Simulated scan of single mutants.
Amino acid sequence: MTEYVSTTPGLFPLPDWAKDDLSGLKGHQKHDLVSGDEGEAITGVYDEARAEVIDTQHAVGLDRIAEGQLRWDDMLAHPLAVHDAVETRGIVRYYDNNNFYREPVVSGDLDFSGDVARELETAAAGSDAPLQAVLPGPYSLADLATDEHYGDEADFLAAIAEFLAGELEAFPDHETLFLLEPSLVESPPGDGLDERASEAIDAVAAATDADVVVHTYWGAIEEKVYAHLLDAAFEAVGFDFVANQDENLYNIQEYGTKGDIALGLADGQNTLVEDPEAIRDRADWVFDQLPAAEFDTAYLTTNTETFYLPYSKFEAKLEALADAAALTEVNTV
């Protein structure tokens, strides 16, 4: 029997009060803040906001508790943007939407940072629920960055994977890890690089004992890239069933998938809040199209980060996901 688990890909919106406080402290909106050198007042705001988003996840009954990545002003580029060997330069559009990040330019060896681990340690200390870690996938992080040190595309991707694996080894105990890989969809790797992207994901996943979900979104992965992705050792692929149902289903039907699955069924960018029953029905519909498939765990999640949502809508989406997982559990007993 499939276990249904409610969760998110992380990267939460800041509570409204925190946006106001940070704007007053720095004279800028949150996404203009310079990551990594916050003073005590700004750190205090982030700490309080982190506690609030953790409490919110507890209150709605979410099965996996994420730290929230509230300090990730540069979105998925954050782990590089705060690294000593990285220079942040001009503002770059984040894929094809209206959010932006500072271009991370790697100019030295990517040794251990510990920035994300410190955030997770704080989250773990404030919660006894199953913790979910979140990292950019190695291919997406390499795609968002500029290399001025390693000099070779394959070497750079391998260095990014080694860096992420080293960061991951310092994480506190966590139940799951979401590796966010939208670049596999938005900037698909070509011949040769698709295989190396799979090897890089495999190297990062091997650094944790947690269940690893490689979450893809904003569409469906090209067939050849998807087939190579399945060669890596991890527990679940995450599929964006909001942006593209047909091609994601085709990939699963044609090539199979892992023993677990993550279903991006609630829209992480749209303020319309789905009914729990609608989310459950969408999950049932996916499984109806896969009569031969059996999954140990199905993660019910938003398709994308919830960063884009007003905070009240974010809370409502989490509650809908939690209620949907509970409804599905009842119906499958």
Rank of each mutant, 00 (worst) to 15 (best):
N248S: 01
D21A: 07
W72P: 10
D111M: 11
D296T: 09
S23D: 06
L25R: 03
L135Y: 13
G264F: 01
S187Y: 12
A77E: 02
L131S: 11
D152P: 10
Y311Q: 06
A292E: 15
E48A: 15
A316D: 12
E119N: 04
E195C: 08
A233G: 07
E162H: 11
A283T: 14
M75H: 09
H149T: 01
D143F: 11
L272Q: 04
F295C: 13
D32P: 04
S107L: 02
Q132C: 07
V45H: 05
L309A: 15
D152F: 08
L321N: 00
H31M: 14
Q253K: 14
I65T: 02
S312N: 09
L179W: 07
G114Q: 09
A298G: 02
D21W: 00
E315Y: 01
D109P: 05
G238A: 09
D194M: 15
R64G: 01
S127T: 05
L318G: 02
L229A: 07
L300T: 05
P79N: 08
R71T: 01
E305Y: 08
T328Q: 10
E52V: 14
A66N: 03
P136R: 05
T43C: 10
D73C: 12
I201R: 08
S6A: 12
I252A: 08
A85L: 03
K26R: 03
G190T: 00
F234D: 04
V53T: 09
L184Y: 08
N98E: 14
E52I: 13
A324S: 14
S140M: 07
A145I: 12
F178A: 01
L33Y: 03
E148N: 10
G108D: 04
S35E: 12
K258C: 02
L25T: 05
L184I: 09
F295G: 12
R280K: 15
L157V: 05
I201E: 07
L229D: 05
A322T: 00
D21N: 05
A200W: 13
W72R: 10
D73M: 11
P104N: 14
S187F: 12
I42S: 10
L265M: 15
A165H: 04
P291T: 03
V60K: 02
N97Y: 03
A292I: 02
D202T: 12
E103D: 13
G44W: 11
R118P: 13
T332W: 07
D194T: 15
